[in-house]
């Protein structure tokens, strides 16, 4: 059981986290943020995130700013 907090305005849409998430719970958003990028969004069901923080550790922009487990 885990949870992540994404700051979509900090996300530049590199999608390294999409590649890093072992459960495939992140995807490119269909709406742009204020900078014009398509940020990532969490698309898993509640309880599906394992709180491994691999996404946050891979993020070059600290856009995944908190991870809970």
């Amino acid at each position: 059981m885990g949870r992540i907090v994404i700051d979509k305005e900090e996300c530049k849409g590199c999608y390294i986290c999409v590649n890093a998430c072992p459960k495939g719970l992140l995807k490119k958003s269909e709406t742009r943020n204020e900078h014009g990028d398509y940020p990532v969004e969490f698309v898993g069901d509640e309880g599906s995130c394992i709180g491994c923080a691999m996404c946050a550790q891979s993020c070059p922009d600290v856009a995944i700013k908190e991870v809970y487990r």
Partner: peptide, 17 residues
């Protein structure tokens, strides 16, 4: 739930890469 990861304090709060 426990916080297992957060933005480090030694980065400026309003700093952006």
């Amino acid at each position: 739930e426990t916080l297992v990861y957060k933005r480090p304090e030694s980065l400026l709060k309003d700093g952006h890469f």
